[in-house]
């Protein structure tokens, strides 16, 4: 226990672009710590030489031909965005090139 400190939660939250502060931070740190402590039970399982499974199906090589399909109407696309300017989506100024 005590592996997940509030500092770690803050860092991870920033990676995920969320803000966690105050009491919520302490509470989340405690909850995540408890959950991670529980899932660390996995360390007891011997897995040397065991292939990881990222897909349960033995499917491979699923591809499609290089044939065009219709795109969405640009008006529809731009209308989905919470902010737009003419034919573009708009976001707060991105400073880095």
């Amino acid at each position: 226990m005590g592996v997940v400190t509030p500092e770690i939660v803050k860092h991870v939250a920033h990676l995920a672009r969320m803000r966690v502060e105050g009491e919520a931070l302490t509470q989340l740190a405690a909850q995540l710590d408890e959950i991670l402590d529980y899932v660390r039970k996995l360390q007891a399982v011997a897995t040397d030489g065991i292939e990881p499974t990222s897909h349960v199906l033995p499917l491979t090589n699923v591809q499609r031909p290089d044939a065009p399909r219709p795109s969405l109407d640009p008006g529809t696309v731009v209308a989905l965005a919470p902010a737009r300017s003419g034919p573009f989506l708009s976001v707060p100024k991105v400073l880095e090139a």
Binding site: P68, R69, P70, S71, L72, P74, V78, P87
Partner: peptide, 20 residues
């Protein structure tokens, strides 16, 4: 077309006209 969908991958199309 694009890498994972059937949208055209042409350069210079009107903004946001080649999306799905």
């Amino acid at each position: 077309t694009k890498l994972f969908c059937g949208c055209a991958a042409r350069f210079g199309a009107p903004p946001n006209s080649q999306t799905c």
